[in-house]
Amino acid sequence: MEGDLKKMVKKEKEPFHVIHKVPSGDGPYVRAKHAQIVQKDPETAIVWFWKAINAGDRVDSALKDMAVVMKQLDRTEEGIEAIKSFRSLCSKQAQESLDNVLIDLYKKCGNADEQIILLKHKLRKIYLGEAFNGKPTKTARSHGKKFQVSVKQETSRILGNLGWAYIQKGNYMAAEVVYRKAQMIDPDTNKACNLCQCLIKQGRYDEANLVLQDIWQYKLPGFDDSKSRNRAEELLLELQESGQTLPLLTPSLPEGLTFEDDFVEVLERVMNEWAPARSRRLPIFEQISQHRDQLAC
């Protein structure tokens, strides 16, 4: 009881910005964060973020934070235009974070084409060793907690996002190849479920069954998450109810789009062409290259 009282007294003595986790000062960026976090007034926060950008006050953070708030307010198109228009004012170190916000904005507004272009660009940067500013890991934050992310994990995450974007376009063959590559690098239950969905959409039910069996047999990461496990169970039930044990089918592609013209070009360039011959490949792409022959499957 006495210990709790001491903590309360200590907290009361802490500065306002420490208690509320906002930056100190009186500039437009600080006012924006105060409106966003303390007053919980996102519209006012956006006004101050604009002022911060125009005044050159912590532009890196102001632009990123403003786009995030715009996304929360369903003003995604404005957020996209803001990043495109003002990212040139930001430092080189901020570009990766801005790309991540931009991908989220494209995803929310259903712009799969732009999302795919940007995700391919991020894969290219990883291949060239330019991701994480050349470092093997970076510090990320989720729900207020910091953790380390490796290049290997980031590659798998980007491939997973790329696969989901292809699903939104109805290109299940491209999505399948992406998810198989992502699973080779860093397997988890969620990506396995998405891979299963791609196979079902192509009428390849036997392969879909095998993917689901792997989830239970190997207890893939994420299996303990009820949402992912429930989805796996729903997919299994869908297969059982359909009674589909048909021979494997040759999948069809959307009209006007061929597999070679679209996705193979992406991964082949990531593996072979995007970096000069004398450049040192990152180890993760050496691992992917060992499975290159599977791309034609």
Rank of each mutant, 00 (worst) to 15 (best):
residue 91 S to C: 04
residue 89 L to M: 13
residue 135 K to Q: 13
residue 147 F to S: 07
residue 171 N to R: 08
residue 106 Y to F: 15
residue 167 I to D: 00
residue 167 I to C: 07
residue 118 L to D: 01
residue 113 D to K: 15
residue 207 E to C: 00
residue 125 K to C: 07
residue 213 Q to R: 12
residue 176 E to H: 11
residue 108 K to S: 03
residue 203 G to M: 09
residue 157 R to L: 11
residue 114 E to Q: 15
residue 115 Q to W: 00
residue 224 D to R: 13
residue 118 L to W: 09
residue 89 L to G: 02
residue 203 G to H: 08
residue 121 H to C: 10
residue 174 A to F: 00
residue 86 F to L: 11
residue 191 K to S: 03
residue 217 Q to R: 12
residue 138 K to P: 01
residue 141 R to F: 07
residue 222 G to F: 10
residue 197 Q to H: 12
residue 139 T to K: 15
residue 86 F to G: 00
residue 111 N to S: 06
residue 158 I to A: 02
residue 98 L to F: 13
residue 219 K to G: 01
residue 96 E to R: 14
residue 202 Q to I: 05
residue 225 D to S: 06
residue 110 G to H: 03
residue 227 K to C: 02
residue 194 N to A: 00
residue 124 R to P: 00
residue 155 T to N: 06
residue 115 Q to V: 01
residue 116 I to C: 01
residue 154 E to A: 10
residue 188 D to H: 12
residue 152 K to L: 08
residue 176 E to G: 03
residue 183 Q to G: 04
residue 214 D to A: 07
residue 133 N to E: 10
residue 219 K to W: 08
residue 218 Y to C: 06
residue 136 P to V: 04
residue 205 Y to W: 13
residue 176 E to K: 14
residue 126 I to G: 02
residue 138 K to A: 09
residue 107 K to E: 15
residue 110 G to Q: 06
residue 162 L to G: 02
residue 182 A to V: 04
residue 190 N to L: 12
residue 118 L to A: 02
residue 199 L to W: 04
residue 123 L to S: 07
residue 150 S to M: 12
residue 219 K to E: 15
residue 221 P to R: 15
residue 135 K to F: 08
residue 188 D to P: 00
residue 172 Y to H: 14
residue 204 R to W: 03
residue 154 E to D: 15
residue 91 S to K: 10
residue 185 I to F: 09
residue 213 Q to S: 09
residue 161 N to V: 03
residue 145 K to R: 10
residue 131 A to W: 07
residue 208 A to P: 04
residue 129 G to T: 06
residue 187 P to T: 08
residue 116 I to S: 01
residue 134 G to A: 04
residue 116 I to T: 01
residue 206 D to T: 11
residue 119 L to K: 06
residue 197 Q to E: 14
residue 206 D to C: 04
residue 167 I to M: 11
residue 145 K to T: 05
residue 95 Q to V: 01
residue 84 K to S: 01
residue 107 K to F: 09
residue 164 W to L: 13
residue 136 P to K: 08
residue 181 K to W: 10
residue 85 S to P: 01
residue 123 L to W: 12
residue 123 L to M: 15
residue 198 C to N: 08
residue 90 C to V: 03
residue 165 A to G: 00
residue 91 S to E: 08
residue 216 W to H: 08
residue 99 D to M: 10
residue 207 E to N: 05
residue 131 A to L: 11
residue 153 Q to F: 09
residue 214 D to Y: 02
residue 101 V to F: 03
residue 105 L to A: 00
residue 200 I to F: 05
residue 223 F to M: 08
residue 125 K to E: 12
residue 227 K to G: 01
residue 225 D to E: 14
residue 123 L to H: 12
residue 224 D to I: 07
residue 100 N to A: 14
residue 106 Y to H: 13
residue 97 S to E: 15
residue 98 L to S: 04
residue 89 L to P: 01
residue 107 K to L: 07
residue 172 Y to T: 02
residue 109 C to V: 11
residue 165 A to W: 04
residue 126 I to R: 13
residue 119 L to M: 06
residue 151 V to T: 14
residue 178 V to T: 03
residue 150 S to R: 11
residue 84 K to I: 04
residue 190 N to H: 13
residue 161 N to P: 00
residue 201 K to T: 05
residue 196 C to F: 05
residue 140 A to R: 13
residue 155 T to K: 06
residue 84 K to A: 04
residue 136 P to T: 03
